[in-house]
């Protein structure tokens, strides 16, 4: 038996449902942020601009070589550093003359930040640096240094995560130093100097790393920084850092008080 073609169905109730959806959407407030008036609240890992910590840079050129569109310009020269000890060989050191990133070419892949072995490059969420001239988009190292102030503190580690490598190294060194100090203290009469020199500082550092502080914004510092004319994001980052610092100092003082 041949099947009859279906007749056009009557207007569906779905038409009315659709009208209901649009009406409900209209009644609910919009989530749009009016950008120039309201600054966006960007997450700390936003790829806004690349900042340079010049002190950390060893002119290894890895970033410039890895850059897919060759937008990093690095000039340097070698300087001879006089030997530290008498009779030792003089060493050469790379000195950075120019470090510039052309943000007109940059595609914000972040490979340079990833590849930097000395933590000299950072992402900053700052993004308001458009210009009327393409030349001004080449940021020299002075400008890149300015962006460094806008880099937010690194996010808290997950609970149970491995400690960062440098801290792990520090802890190991502290442990070794403590063992050495203990070994030295057993026969010797003067362990205090050695302990202070070798063991105490890393040990204190280790203790400090054990202190876990939930990052919060220090309102006082924040207000002060905003009053100084810093951008809100920078102020927030710094205020958080200040809070963490203060809190850790407090806890440390408490522990010291408890022990003593």
């Amino acid at each position: 038996m041949p099947t009859l073609p279906k007749l056009p169905r009557p207007p569906q109730i779905g038409l009315l449902k659709g009208l209901g959806v649009t009406l409900k959407t209209m009644m609910s407030p919009s989530t749009t942020q009016q950008y120039p008036h309201v600054k966006p609240d960007l997450p700390p890992r936003t790829r806004g601009v690349i900042a340079l910590m010049e002190e950390n840079c060893t002119v290894c050129m890895l970033c410039g070589r890895e850059c897919p569109d060759w937008c990093i310009y690095i000039d340097s020269h070698k300087e001879v550093v006089p030997p530290k000890e008498e009779g030792a060989r003089a060493r050469t050191r790379n000195v950075l003359d120019r470090f510039a990133i052309d943000f007109a070419l940059c595609m914000y892949c972040g490979i340079c930040v990833e590849v930097c072995p000395f933590d000299a490059l950072f992402w900053s969420p700052e993004f308001e640096y458009s210009t009327y001239s393409i030349r001004e988009l080449t940021h020299e190292k002075e400008q890149l240094r300015v962006w460094m102030d806008t880099v937010p503190p690194p996010p808290e580690l997950d609970v149970g995560a491995d400690l960062p490598k440098e801290i792990e190294d520090g802890l190991k060194a502290a442990r070794q130093a403590a063992e050495k100090a203990a070994a030295a203290a057993a026969p010797s009469e003067a362990p205090a100097a050695a302990g202070k020199a070798g063991g105490d500082a890393p040990a204190a550092q280790a203790a400090e790393e054990d202190i876990h502080v939930e990052a919060q914004v220090d309102q006082e510092v924040f207000d002060q920084l905003v009053a100084e004319g810093k951008s809100e994001r920078v102020a927030r980052a710094k205020a958080k850092a200040a809070y963490v610092r203060k809190e850790k100092a407090r806890i440390r003082a408490e522990r010291a008080g408890g022990e003593g």
């Binding site: 649009t22 009406l23 959407t25 209209m26 609910s28 919009s30 989530t31 749009t32 009016q34």
Partner: peptide, 13 residues
């Protein structure tokens, strides 16, 4: 404006 709000936008502001 109506179209914008029904599409969860603000429209011209």
């Amino acid at each position: 404006k109506v179209l914008a709000h029904q599409q969860d936008r603000l429209g011209p502001m």
